[in-house]
């Protein structure tokens, strides 16, 4: 490929061999995971971890790369989930993968609409616009029974279950592979965007928007693109969360807490990195387990579950503050996966 022409990029043969071996091992491990892990791990930890990673990735494109702060992640996930439900219910001929794409596009359009104020306002004030999305859709999807097909519990579920072009995907393995495939594909597409002109435009706006406009970056268009792409990914993540993880979902599944959770994932994992979303999601998924295990061993079950939950929240809060102050590039930087940089990501542009 193109690397061949660039001697500077050439690496020693054994290093390339090691990398290829590592990649092959990783792919092998991912494909074999369902046979290595218990059903509980797949259902309750690995699948939600993958979906949260995807949501984190979506938000990171907007917040970490384009520098637009959003607390509306839950709202765009909600739109994706309800759109998928509606499409599967009312357009039964549309196969699930295509329904997911269309639902993503709907979420993307919604994200774009709520991103329009970003052309006038920044940082802290932009949160208000994205919060408006959060509250508006919580209200909308509860208010009109059409959105949940009028069932008595106001929940949504796919009556025909999950399938992938004829392959049934309802078991733990099926849901794992469906999720993994979608997450891998969207990660690859995001990487392509980040490495191209779109990603450069986003980062230019994040780092200095006035200069970006002066050197010819179409700031307005690039911001809206960031909102649309981010919401597209969040929408698909929301549909997966509802139907591949929870099975049936309601407005509460995508409340403000979810928005905060996704934001925390990218703060902890690392703003403006692709792997940050994965690290953050792993952290968020594994911390409760680790704490559980720790308390079991330390106090052999004498701490009640309610207290444990509160301790978890306190630990999260402290970590968020610590990361915001000390390490805005998150775990990705702490683990040495990211080269040192002169610039620090800031959530609130001055």
């Amino acid at each position: 490929m193109s690397e061949i022409n660039l001697p500077a990029a050439a690496e020693p043969v054994d290093s390339i061999g090691l990398k290829a071996l590592g990649a092959a091992a990783a792919v092998g491990l991912l494909l074999a995971a369902p046979f290595l892990a218990s059903e509980y791990w797949i259902n309750a930890i690995i699948v939600p971890f993958l979906i949260l990673s995807l949501a984190g990735l979506g938000l990171n494109l907007l917040t970490g790369y384009a520098g637009q702060l959003s607390l509306g992640a839950g709202a765009f996930m909600m739109v994706g989930a309800y759109a998928t439900f509606s499409l599967q219910l009312r357009v039964p001929d549309l196969p699930l993968p295509l329904a997911l794409v269309v639902a993503g596009l709907i979420a993307g359009a919604v994200g774009l609409a709520f991103g329009i104020p970003s052309t006038r306002i920044k940082g802290f004030y932009l949160i208000v616009s994205t919060l408006a999305a959060q509250f508006f859709f919580e209200w909308l999807f509860l208010k009109f029974p059409w959105f949940y097909n009028g069932n008595s519990s106001a929940t949504i579920a796919l009556s025909r279950g999950l399938s992938f072009f004829g392959l049934e995907a309802n078991g733990p393995h099926g849901r794992y592979y469906l999720t993994l495939g979608i997450v891998a594909l969207l990660t690859l597409l995001s990487l392509n965007l980040i490495r191209g002109q779109t990603g450069r435009n986003w980062m230019a706006i994040r780092d200095m928007d006035t200069a970006a406009a002066v050197i010819g970056v179409p700031v307005f268009r690039a911001k809206l693109q960031a909102f649309a792409v981010s919401s597209f990914i969040l929408g698909i993540a929301g549909a997966l969360w509802a139907f591949a993880y929870l099975g049936s979902a309601s407005v509460q599944s995508f409340g403000l807490t979810r928005s905060y959770q996704i934001l925390f994932i990218i703060i902890i994992g690392g703003l403006g990195t692709i792997r940050g979303a994965y690290l953050g999601a792993a952290f968020v998924s594994l911390l409760p387990l680790a704490l559980d295990w720790l308390f079991q061993h330390l106090f052999s079950g004498h701490v009640d579950a309610g207290l444990l939950q509160n301790i978890q929240k306190a630990i999260f809060g402290i970590l968020i503050i610590w990361f915001l102050i000390k390490e805005p590039e998150g775990l990705a930087r702490l683990l040495g996966l990211r080269r040192a940089q002169g610039a620090r990501r800031r959530l609130f542009p001055s």
């Binding site: 002109q197 994040r206 780092d207 200095m208 200069a211 010819g216 940089q341 990501r345």
Partner: peptide, 22 residues
């Protein structure tokens, strides 16, 4: 007024943004 988190090459390529057609 450089884009401080980007590489030198990316900074310069960002200057070509107005010629982007894809």
């Amino acid at each position: 007024a450089l884009f401080s988190g980007m590489s030198v090459l990316d900074n310069v390529i960002a200057g070509l943004s107005r010629h982007s057609r894809v």
